[in-house]
Design a protein around this nucleic acid. Structure first.
Lengths: 357, 357
DNA sequence: CTGAAAGCGCTTACAG
DNA sequence: CTGAAAGCGCTTACAG
């Protein structure tokens, strides 16, 4: 393959000038830049990322860590992040934790990410204290999406999970429900993953504000999956008198719940109302009422906030655009308030008033 | 950060020996290896990927290209590929084309991937002749999953789309249906993307074998999405007498079709039967009959076939394992037959005999 | 605005 | 089994 020397020779300049011209640095005359670009194009030159990274210290790559890419929220977030990163000239290294504890440790704790990426996007990734220490030692910029795991110095984009849960529960209360079950994550989870605890809190707050006392026998632990929702509902129904409504902490749980209810001969919403959180692609198909959250927008916004202080990614030889100045980012220690994006109640067919006794 | 020199000094050997020991090369004595590993651990040493790549010529990274990570099949495939790659010490660079033609060109045609990855996984990615030329110039090993786009020298893992479609259609025929509609991709698409043309072919073959002539007015073009299935079904219903059954080329199309049917006041399966292909996570929830295909298995198998000839990925300093010998792969020109994985008819509630006239 | 030269941190023949 | 030295292909002060 052609190297930078070849381009320099053809253009009649030094390799330093080729390097500058190709990256659009302002310290190159227009005429020189034109000659360099022409030479590069003629030779089909592409920089060697390894050499560029070793010499320049920047990788033009961002690590994106998600629990499970196959879950609606994470897939949607990754898609939006991917688009923004690539449009900005960055590559995306994907890490799908898949619930495997040792994978999480390999990714987060070893110096694996060191010198491999310029920044990290952590999507709803539970962090233990040792993870935080490791991330701090990595000393990379990053951002978290959706999780309550606050990494010092990193911004966070999310929704207000407590408020979303309150709204969902209140919708059921407004319809007249009093026996409202909840299916969410494991409440005793020691990980700093606050999504499910926040949603459980919103559920309880809404009940209390309505003068009701949360009933522990209606409060189920589960995974954030269809199967999890299914199993939790089976167990819930086995406990005795079914609730008249279920608030599921996410749409996938709600879908599993709908299946279990159907299998048990209960109709939605005639016998049991169901509401979730997300507005999953398929919630419309299923007629599932939900609290819609802007997943793609959270991803896009996070990518933008992350990249703003980093400037353009890899070299774009033929684009000729000038990178934005590396504006001062945060100082890495100031605590930043999370960026909260709005949610919205979407009423479909899965919620209705309870039948009269 | 600590460099290889630091480790060499502490272990009392040369950097060459450190390099060999850390990569598990067999030409290092056990005692020396132990000392090096201890030194590396003590110093928390991690190799610089950029330097290693520049010097060694290998990146330890694989590019994975998918049309849309948010679609069930692609997300599931990526998850499986990701797990295999990371377990083998490789990093995964994700490219989500998102239907944007210029993104496809940027990824596939420019020398973008050059020196950036050791291999490429192309999932159901339509390829134009110019793309094939560009890939050939890249001169990298690769593998395709699911697409009919054959890249010379690359293996392919897939299902038999024609047979799958025949099975689905025959299931409807066996139930007694005669007016069977089909919703698939654009039949005039000039891209070498054969999934939808293969499935359409299977549909027609099954009809002909049953002595029926395919009715063009029942053959709809669409996107492989819920919305696509919805719109195509709306259009189908607007054409006049509805079919008694629909064979959708994928489950997401089928889900959109179910929604459109419901919105039109038609019941599934009493008025119209629906069957898809995939066995999407949610097909069980929706009671959708389908042809199940092993998505994760296709991903896992493809990753294995791809990596087998490449050996271990990045350095794993403390694992001390010995890389497999770089067994001779294909010679890059021999045409390879695709690896075909089995599919399976799954009958649920969305298919039933047509009502008597 | 441009160039000569050092240096980024490894791996790989080559020699022993 | 081990080491000295060259080289991978860029970018970056530094000097002009």
């Amino acid at each position: 393959m052609t190297r930078i020397d070849d381009v320099a020779r053809l253009a009649g300049v030094s390799t330093a000038t080729v390097s500058r011209a190709l990256r659009g640095l302002p310290t190159v005359s227009a005429a020189t830049r034109r000659r360099v670009l022409a030479a590069a194009e003629q030779l089909q030159y592409a920089v060697s990322p390894s050499a560029s990274r070793l010499a320049g210290g920047r990788t033009g790559t961002v690590a994106v860590v998600v629990p499970r890419i196959t879950r609606w929220f994470f897939g949607t977030v990754v898609e939006a992040v991917e688009e923004f990163l690539h449009d900005s000239g960055y590559d995306l290294l994907l890490y799908n934790l898949g619930g495997r504890e040792q994978v999480r440790q390999r990714v987060l704790r070893t110096a694996n990410l060191h010198k491999r990426v310029d920044a990290i996007v952590l999507v709803a990734t539970p962090l233990r204290p040792a993870d935080l220490t490791a991330l701090a030692e990595l000393d990379l910029p990053g951002i978290t999406i959706s999780s309550g795991s606050t990494v010092p110095g990193w911004p966070c984009v999310r929704i207000d999970d407590v408020a979303a849960a309150r709204t969902a529960t209140r919708h059921l209360l407004d319809l007249g429900h009093r026996r409202i079950a909840h299916i969410s994550g494991d409440p005793t989870d020691e990980l700093a993953f606050t999504t499910h605890t926040d949603r459980r809190r919103g559920y309880r707050e809404a009940l209390r504000r309505a003068g009701l006392r949360p009933d522990p026998s209606l409060d189920m632990e589960s995974q954030f999956t269809i199967d999890g929702g299914n199993q939790a509902t089976v167990e819930l129904l086995a406990r005795g008198e079914p609730p008249t409504a279920i608030f599921a902490a996410c749409d996938e749980i709600a879908m599993g719940a709908m299946t279990a209810l159907r299998d048990a001969g209960l109709r939605v919403p005639q016998d049991v109302s169901v509401i979730g959180v997300d507005d999953h692609d398929l919630s419309g198909v299923l007629g599932l009422s939900t609290i819609a959250q802007p997943a793609a927008e959270q991803g896009r916004l996070a990518a933008r906030l992350l990249l703003d202080p980093l400037g353009t990614g890899t070299v774009e030889p033929y684009a000729g655009r000038v990178p934005a100045p590396r504006g001062a980012g945060g100082d890495g220690t100031t605590p930043m308030p999370p960026v909260i994006l709005p949610t919205r109640l979407v009423v479909r067919e899965s919620t209705a008033p309870p039948r009269a006794h």
